[in-house]
Amino acid sequence: MPSSYPLVSISHGSASRVAVVALLAVGLGAAVTAKAQAPADGEPSFPTWGLGLGVMSEQEPYAGIGRDNTPLPLLQFENRYIHLFGPRIEFKLPGLDIGDSQQLNFGIVGQYDGSGYEEDDAPILNGMAKRRGGFWAGAAVEWSSSFVDVSAEWLADASGNSNGQVVSLGLERTWQLGKRVLLTPHVGASWQDENYVDYYFGVRESEARLDRPAYIGESAVNIEAGVRGVYMFDRHHSVLMGVEVTGLADEIKDSPLVDRSTTNSLYLGYLYRF
């Protein structure tokens, strides 16, 4: 089952780069895996292993927090039942073939999300209670065709910190340019429920001050667009890149903690496949 789910940032906290790179890695790693595994009979060879290192650069929405640049290790493993890349794991379920060029794929997914902040991350957060990330789990489905891949995913906060839920929808298509380059533009939308938005962007009455009034978060829909790319030197060595821009919903932009209407992330990495 290809793991080409949408590149959708489910978080925008001081450590949201963890969630961003998880989904970047899913799409980038799937492209590398699909290309490198494709033998003459069309059946992928399992299992596969990969190790690498990447760098994430992200601009976050909180006021006073500058651009964050962080090195991130990459670990990939895939067989017929499991796909692991970075902090995300997928348990593959039986798919459904629809004709010669269409397929429905299903999976149970889990990932660590390092979203959240501490009060010393920025002056606007002074006096705020710490917001934590945690482990998220849910389900994903993908309709794959020769024209476009459409995917949907539901995740819930299994750690119970925000008690939030996120539903993501994405569309993407991969083009092969020559023998070595794969390019995947994508667009998506991410719905975040009121628990999620209030936890990460709300201000409690006990946290309010003159320049930070109390704020109750409501459910929101963010819009994302970007492109992923892979340059394959050979079956073992690949360079991965990703660029994404997210338009924040009004329910997030209106938070007194936020001072921008968009966020963006850049990713560059190297992967060695055994």
Rank of each mutant, 00 (worst) to 15 (best):
A220V: 09
G202V: 01
N222E: 15
Y200F: 15
Q192C: 08
G202H: 03
R204I: 07
R204K: 12
P213A: 13
I223Q: 15
D234N: 15
V187T: 10
H236L: 07
L210I: 10
D211H: 03
V221A: 10
D211G: 04
Y231S: 10
R228C: 08
E218I: 00
A225F: 14
L210D: 15
D234E: 14
P213T: 07
D193P: 07
A214H: 05
A225I: 03
V187W: 11
S206Y: 13
V197H: 00
M232V: 02
V227Q: 09
A208G: 02
W191E: 06
R228G: 15
R204M: 11
V227N: 05
I216A: 14
Y215W: 11
E194P: 01
D198P: 07
P185H: 04
P185W: 08
R228E: 15
Y200N: 08
Q192R: 14
G188M: 04
A214K: 03
D211W: 07
F201C: 05
I223C: 13
H186E: 14
Y199S: 06
V227C: 08
N195E: 11
V227T: 12
V221E: 11
N222M: 14
V203W: 02
H186C: 04
D193A: 03
S190W: 04
E218M: 11
M232I: 02
Y196I: 01
Y231A: 07
D193S: 05
A208Q: 05
V187M: 14
E194S: 15
F233D: 09
Y199R: 05
V230Q: 12
D198A: 10
R228S: 15
S219C: 10
S206P: 03
Y215D: 07
E218A: 12
R235C: 05
A220N: 07
Y200S: 12
F201T: 04
A225K: 09
A214I: 03
V227W: 04
G226Y: 09
L210W: 07
W191Q: 02
F233T: 13
F201Q: 00
Y196C: 02
E194V: 09
Q192W: 08
R228Y: 13
D193C: 01
R235M: 02
E224H: 04
V221L: 08
S219M: 02
G217Y: 07
Q192Y: 06
V187K: 03
G217F: 10
